[in-house]
Design a protein around this nucleic acid. Sequence first.
DNA 1: CACTAATAATTAGTACCCTAACTAAAGGAA
DNA 2: TTCCTTTAGTTAGGGTACTAATTATTAGTG
Lengths: 146, 146
Amino acid sequence: MPADDPLALDRQVCFALAAASRTVIGLYRPVLEPLGLTHPQYLVMLALWERSPRTVRDLGETLSLEPATLSPLLKRLEIAGLLTRARRVDDERALDVELTPAGRELRSRALAVPGKIVARLGLEVSELERIRDSLTTLLAAASPPQ
Amino acid sequence: MPADDPLALDRQVCFALAAASRTVIGLYRPVLEPLGLTHPQYLVMLALWERSPRTVRDLGETLSLEPATLSPLLKRLEIAGLLTRARRVDDERALDVELTPAGRELRSRALAVPGKIVARLGLEVSELERIRDSLTTLLAAASPPQ
DNA sequence: CACTAATAATTAGTACCCTAACTAAAGGAA
DNA sequence: TTCCTTTAGTTAGGGTACTAATTATTAGTG
């Protein structure tokens, strides 16, 4: 195996990305479980805590997720009582995905989540911010032209 | 929404990670489809092109994937004729996952893959390497202690 | 040697993830 | 106004991804 192998696993950004993503997200599981959330659900709630109500399309664009992924996911959050989905009055193709009081109140418990993960990672916050900025660059480069 | 909101989406490394990972991996789909591979399968093949045969456990550790994920995935690659799975003689709990001649030959077509993705991303190779190194740091921090 | 504990891989179950197809509603053009 | 095109969200289907449970094999202990 030559030292300059173009297909070497440790040369592939996509592998580093996939493995890091899965592994980091895996750390959230025990932290989010007491809140009754999976990681993708947590991301949805983060978006709604920023702004609610929002449409499925808006959530999809914000989270880089397809409607087909969001649809059942939102359904499960609705069943859990954290949000409601109602047809918009001005455009009945669209849904207003809106936090319930329970969904809103969950935010205060979620405030402890990032700190727990940062502590588990044991990296400097400044380094995490640098990594995050790199990822934002990468996401922009990979995203479809607007 | 305060400017220093600890739960702001764009402050979460995990969100940047999830979105970037999904989006970048999504770019591979049309490139890998002519090779008959999904992205996770591509990663498995990369590992086997480095070294074959390998056990499921070895592949799992290398790729940060659970055996439960690998089991059906390898089965599909076996059905596709790219690899075989055989009980090891020295330890019948373990499998030897070994490339077939077809699996081995696929590598030459796969050599074009990274270049296509890099071109699509339009980022300098040096920047991609920097990002990859960051991710490797992150993966190490997130991984269970050895 | 007998028995217990640990290990490797598979299966079951749940929750994503995407593409493709579909239904219903809205927008736009003639 | 009518009709075609586009859009929003859902459903279907295939492929992951994980935890938990299971089966069979191996390792370790007395």
